[in-house]
Computed example of a mutant assay.
Amino acid sequence: MKPTLPRTAATRLHDSTQPLPPHKLIPCPCCHEPLQHTALHCAHCGAEKHYGPRLHELLLYALSGLALCLALIFILTPHAFSTASFWLYPLLGSGLTAGFLLAQFRFSGERWIQHRKK
């Protein structure tokens, strides 16, 4: 027997009873137990769905972009390391921004992250 909408909701749908959508179950990407497709947390293994980069990934990529830009400036123009150099700080800021944007694009989708067991 398929579940149907109650009479009050059916009257709003021009006296037609509509079957409810089925509950779809998918396997958890970490433990492969059944999981609803709208779940944000797995009750079996404790994995959580994340969107975008986490804080430590964001900091790692931003600081890596900063270090890479700093190394390129040092290799290409070693005289730019004086504190009076006008272009040093905007170039370092662009390296920091490039690392931040790379992290945003790299981790832009949804992913399941399982917590480490202690």
Rank of each mutant, 00 (worst) to 15 (best):
M1K: 12
T4Y: 06
R12M: 13
L13N: 14
S16F: 06
P19C: 04
L20Y: 05
L20P: 00
P22R: 08
H23M: 12
L25K: 11
L25Q: 14
C28H: 01
P29Q: 10
P29S: 10
E33K: 15
Q36T: 14
Q36I: 06
Q36W: 08
Q36P: 01
H37S: 15
T38L: 10
T38R: 12
T38N: 12
H41N: 07
A43E: 11
H44C: 11
H50E: 03
G52V: 02
R54Y: 04
E57K: 13
L58Q: 06
L60F: 13
L60H: 00
A62I: 01
L63K: 00
L70Y: 11
I75H: 08
I75C: 10
I75P: 01
T77D: 12
P78H: 08
A80R: 14
A80I: 13
F81R: 14
S82H: 11
A84K: 12
S85A: 14
S85F: 11
F86V: 15
F86W: 11
W87E: 08
L91K: 03
L91M: 15
G95T: 01
G95C: 05
L96R: 03
A98F: 10
A98E: 00
A98P: 04
G99Q: 02
L102G: 03
L102D: 03
F105P: 00
R106M: 09
G109W: 01
G109K: 09
R111P: 00
W112E: 01
I113T: 14
Q114T: 04
Q114H: 14
H115R: 11
K117Y: 04
K118A: 06
